[in-house]
């Protein structure tokens, strides 16, 4: 099957100074790299998980796909059509097919509008007003298991879980094919996280939606996504089918992340693969393999050159000079 979304060597760079300043300071390259050439594809009806710590560039990928950031090079193909370089007017129809769900449940809802008006926004923007708006709003609220009377409330009157549901409802308004969910469970209590993830799974079943889930929570990704990519400083260090990446990981960073998410058991002997330090800033991107400053198995070669892509079976890719041996199951 042809992929719904195909991201091919996507590279996003941020300008660090104005053109004039760069000219004065004779800086030919006044940029830093946000995303360093990532490639992945999402099949219809599937969920792709993008995992990384803060500063890894996962939100940048999402915003680039939505056309909210200029793309330096690479392609973003939706149904085979490249979105990179399209004008505002040409890209607008695609915004109906790709919806974005935001990190902050309440903060992504316009605070002075009632829920009813917030849900009507997508229709207004795309001039697709349904004949009976209140019926449509009630239908959307019902889809996310909220009562239609919620339409009369303001965002600050909702609980975190309810606000998140409204976010889902808004994303669903124009019947998109792909929903990009940025940290769908962040800021929610454990008992509510499940509700949102179940809702997303149910919608996927009913409507054949595809999801791109961006999160730092590996436990969430393990349950909901078919494929997963582990991101670090703008690169996918490892990517592949979720089961493979979780059980036959080859990259030390994946292993460290996974061990940081061990199940809560006071008696568990933690074979924690401790990695020291923190993710470096984009400005001070390390040479060679970006992860070498924190890698427990770092060797001389890692400091000098970035490893080539290596594959291990179908769809499983990683970048490491000295990959882990596959654990025996």
């Amino acid at each position: 099957m042809a992929p719904l979304l195909e991201v091919d060597h996507l590279r996003v760079r941020f300008k660090t100074k104005s053109a004039v300043k760069a000219l004065i300071e004779k800086d030919d390259d006044p940029y830093i790299d946000g995303v360093m050439g990532v490639s992945f594809a999402i099949e219809p009806g599937q969920t792709y998980g993008l995992v990384g710590e803060s500063g890894s560039g996962k939100t940048t990928v999402a915003r680039a796909i939505m056309g909210l950031l200029p793309v330096h090079s690479g392609a973003i193909r939706f149904h085979g059509e490249n979105l990179v370089g399209l004008s505002r007017d040409r890209i607008k129809p695609f915004r109906r097919d790709i919806a974005l769900m935001f990190q902050d449940p309440a903060g992504s809802l316009s605070p002075r509008l009632k829920i009813r008006s917030i849900l009507a926004e997508p229709f207004r923007i795309h001039d697709m007003m349904p004949e009976n708006l209140s019926v449509e709003v009630a239908r959307l609220l019902k889809m996310v298991n909220l009562s239609p009377s919620m339409g009369d409330l303001y965002p600050h009157q909702l609980s975190g879980g309810q606000a998140r549901r409204v976010g889902v409802a808004r994303a669903l308004a124009l019947s998109p094919k792909l929903i990009i969910a940025d940290e769908p469970t962040a800021g929610l209590d454990v008992s509510v996280q499940g509700e949102i993830l179940n809702l997303m799974a149910q919608l996927q079943n009913d409507m054949g939606l595809s999801f791109l889930i961006i999160t730092h929570n590996l436990a969430v990704v393990r349950h909901v996504s078919d494929h997963v990519a582990i991101m670090y400083l703008g690169r996918f260090l490892e990517q592949g089918p979720t089961q493979t990446v979780f059980h036959r990981m080859r990259h030390p960073y994946t292993q460290a992340l996974l061990s940081a998410h061990a199940s809560p058991d006071p008696d568990a002997v933690h074979h924690r693969i401790s990695i020291s330090g923190e993710i470096p800033g984009l400005v001070s991107r390390p040479r060679g393999c970006e992860f070498h400053t924190r890698c427990p198995g770092v060797q001389e070669k890692c400091r000098r050159q970035f490893p080539d892509k290596a594959g291990a079976g179908k769809d499983h890719r990683y970048f490491c000079h000295y990959p882990l041996s596959v654990p025996e199951n």
Binding site: A219, H223, S263, P266
Partner: peptide
């Protein structure tokens, strides 16, 4: 963690996605 008594504690422990060993699309909630 091993012998929770109160139903709320049990539910809370069961909800944590990292506890559930087998990947599932439908997670327990309260």
């Amino acid at each position: 963690f091993h012998r929770p008594g109160h139903p709320y504690t049990r539910a809370l422990l069961e909800c944590d996605p990292s506890v559930i060993a087998e990947p599932t699309r439908f997670l327990p909630t309260i």
